[in-house]
Amino acid sequence: MPFPNIDPIAFAIGPIAIRWYALAYLFGVLLGAAYGWLLLRNPRLWYRGAPPFPAKDIWDFAFWAMLAIVIGGRTGYVLFYNLPYYLQNPTQIINTLDGGMSYHGGMLGLMLAAVLFARSKGGHWLSALDLLGAVATIGIMLGRIANFINGELYGAPTTLPWGVIFPTDPLQVPRHPSQLYESLLEGLLLLLLIRVVTHLFHGLRKPGLVAGIFAIGYSLARILVEFVRLPDVQIGYLYGGWLTLGQVLSLPMLIIGIGLVAYALTRRENPIRP
């Protein structure tokens, strides 16, 4: 299947080019904040009827979130994926035009921002992480679509009928559109699953439950897709050629997610029903 003719640059204003990649981050935060506002304004969803902070403050948090994603994502990429290069070229650390962002670094930044913001408002920090788990899937879905448009992070060669020939691939062979796999699994399907948990099973009344489900769902999906997604060229496969760095970084997330779910479900003083 040929790659769709989509220009990575959405539009330009004079010499300034606006890329779909940047718009994905922007709209991921804005749409996530809008959905978060809907959740926060319904106290019946939350533990003891108390959301982590007032709904009106979500737009202030959106600013925190944007900074946390950019700073955390870039820092994570520098530290986890290409530290020797950036030690030799420190001026390139702030150059995000190469698309060098780490999901795990961005999520750590977001978690820290959510905890600090909730504490500043006197809210429950675990509920703040639950809020992140409920809305972060939107940004992930859009971000992976932007990766597809950029022709980056594609998968291994495949003979499946939906294999895509990416213009950035030097071999020009059909490959797994692993970006779209992740957009579907880590984004849309996980969003729908968490929506069921929050609204049918009152999951936000168990602080830590939604955050744990998000961590488990994301890490399992990421580990699965990494089996067909090519690793970063500067790192390659690890531990004898069968693990990727993305899988290694997702394992602690999986363990923490399981721990959060177990903690949330064993606290009897947090009623899950009205």
Rank of each mutant, 00 (worst) to 15 (best):
L171T: 11
N5W: 05
V196P: 06
I58R: 09
F11E: 02
A113C: 12
Y25I: 11
S219Q: 03
L192N: 05
P231A: 06
L191Y: 15
P207R: 00
R44S: 14
V115M: 13
R144P: 07
G259C: 11
Y239G: 06
V197H: 01
S127K: 09
L185W: 12
I255K: 03
I216C: 12
G36Y: 08
L31D: 12
F3C: 00
G187D: 00
S219H: 02
N42M: 03
H124E: 14
A55T: 08
S120P: 01
Y81E: 06
A128W: 10
V164M: 12
L260G: 10
L245I: 13
G106A: 14
G133I: 00
L30E: 10
F214Q: 06
R267N: 14
R175P: 10
I18W: 12
G155Q: 01
V225L: 02
P52L: 05
I71A: 14
G72S: 09
M101R: 02
P252E: 02
D7M: 05
V196Q: 13
I140H: 14
L39T: 14
A17D: 12
L189A: 08
V197E: 06
T159H: 11
N147H: 07
L79Q: 03
L87N: 07
L245Q: 10
P274D: 14
A55G: 04
T244W: 00
P161Q: 09
V135R: 02
L251G: 00
L97A: 15
Y263T: 07
L192K: 04
G99M: 01
D57R: 14
A10F: 09
I145W: 15
Y47V: 07
T75S: 15
N95S: 11
G217C: 03
D57T: 11
L224W: 13
A114P: 09
T91A: 14
A221I: 02
W46R: 10
V225C: 05
S102R: 05
F63P: 00
F166T: 01
P271N: 10
W20H: 07
I71P: 03
A22S: 15
M111N: 01
R41Y: 04
I145Q: 10
L30A: 14
M66A: 15
G72L: 08
G123A: 04
V228C: 10
G109F: 07
I69N: 00
M253P: 05
R41H: 07
R74I: 12
R44I: 04
G32C: 13
T75I: 13
K56I: 13
R195W: 15
A24Y: 01
L153Q: 09
G109T: 03
L160N: 13
R41A: 06
V261L: 12
T91D: 11
F227C: 04
V233Q: 11
I94E: 06
L245R: 10
G212R: 03
V233H: 08
S127C: 11
L184R: 08
A264S: 13
R19S: 15
G257R: 03
I145Y: 13
N5I: 06
G73D: 01
T96C: 11
M111E: 06
L209N: 05
Y154T: 02
N89G: 01
L188M: 10
I94Q: 04
I149F: 02
M66D: 02
F148E: 04
I255D: 01
Y103W: 14
R229I: 05
G217D: 01
R48K: 15
N150M: 04
L153W: 09
